[in-house]
């Protein structure tokens, strides 16, 4: 088991956002985390990658953010729930955040190099850069462009590319298709499959369930902060109640 989340609970200003989430993922797997809007999918990814704990630390008093976080997260046999976010990255668990969040004032290249922040060897960085460029040739032709001026699809590719520069063993991707045209979406999903084929496990949060189910080996269905069920795409689609109630299909 590469990732194991046990009884993860997040309470934000007395509202239970995640209620005892349990999920796991094997090395090399591509697992989907699906569910309706506001179910807690993004929060789950943020909690796993340490961002909720970070926010708890820094934003006290800013949004009146009273945050509690509980539960056990084990990655590659090591507890990461008490690790600061920047350390979790060095363990190989990398999040490509929602709305890709490029550093908008920086160039494409600087964004990618930011992803490689922890890598000290220049040769290795160059190698990874080549891999990213090979995967996303469009980025190569725009290395000097300010990333805020890229199209949505290009920004998504930059987001994933930047995450790859951090040399993930498990890549969590949050809503990669959001705001993208159908053709671009297809391309993004194709790239995700390709990354998975290179041996990188992927935990994918996505609204577009029909596409996700074609890609994933297993899926978790989450609603109102709770895991409702878990299983292969086929199994979930055959369950009429699940399909109608939670997947809206």
């Amino acid at each position: 088991m590469q990732l194991e989340v046990i009884n993860l609970r997040v309470v934000f200003n007395k509202a239970m956002i995640l209620n005892d989430i349990n999920l796991s993922l094997n090395k090399g797997e591509l697992v989907g985390l699906v569910g309706p809007n506001g179910a807690g999918k993004s929060t789950a990814l943020k909690a796993i990658s340490g961002l909720i704990a970070w926010r708890k630390k820094v934003s006290k008093g800013i949004i009146g953010g009273d945050i509690t976080i509980d539960g056990l997260i084990v990655f590659n046999g090591e507890r990461i729930d008490e690790m600061p976010a920047h350390k979790i990255v060095s363990n190989g668990l990398v999040l490509c955040p929602e709305r890709r969040k490029p550093f908008r004032e920086m160039t494409v290249l600087d964004n990618l190099l930011a992803g490689a922040f922890l890598e000290r060897k220049k040769v290795k960085i160059k190698e990874n850069l080549d891999i990213v460029y090979q995967l996303f040739p469009k980025l190569k032709s725009r290395t000097r462009q300010i990333s805020g001026t890229l199209s949505g699809g290009e920004q998504q590719m930059l987001g994933i590319g930047r995450a790859l520069m951090s040399q993930p063993r498990l890549l969590c991707i949050d809503e990669p298709s959001i705001g993208l045209a159908p053709i671009v979406r297809a391309e993004v999903f194709e790239k995700i499959m390709e990354i998975n084929k290179r041996g990188i496990s992927i935990l994918l949060v996505e609204q577009e369930i029909s596409t996700v189910f074609k890609m994933t080996s297993r899926n978790y269905v989450i609603s109102s902060g709770q895991i409702i069920t878990e299983g292969t795409s086929e199994k979930l689609l055959n369950d009429n109640v699940i399909r109608k109630t939670y997947l809206g299909m």
């Binding site: 340490g50 600061p84 976010a85 920047h86 350390k87 990255v89 969040k101 600087d110 930011a114 922890l118």
Partner: peptide, 24 residues
């Protein structure tokens, strides 16, 4: 420099900078 890159990245988006392994 790498430090400069981290400073710029952190200045733009502290949360995301964390995700790059930058100790904010």
């Amino acid at each position: 420099t790498k430090l400069g890159l981290a400073i710029r990245a952190t200045a733009q988006d502290r949360e995301t900078a964390n995700l790059m392994g930058m100790n904010e």
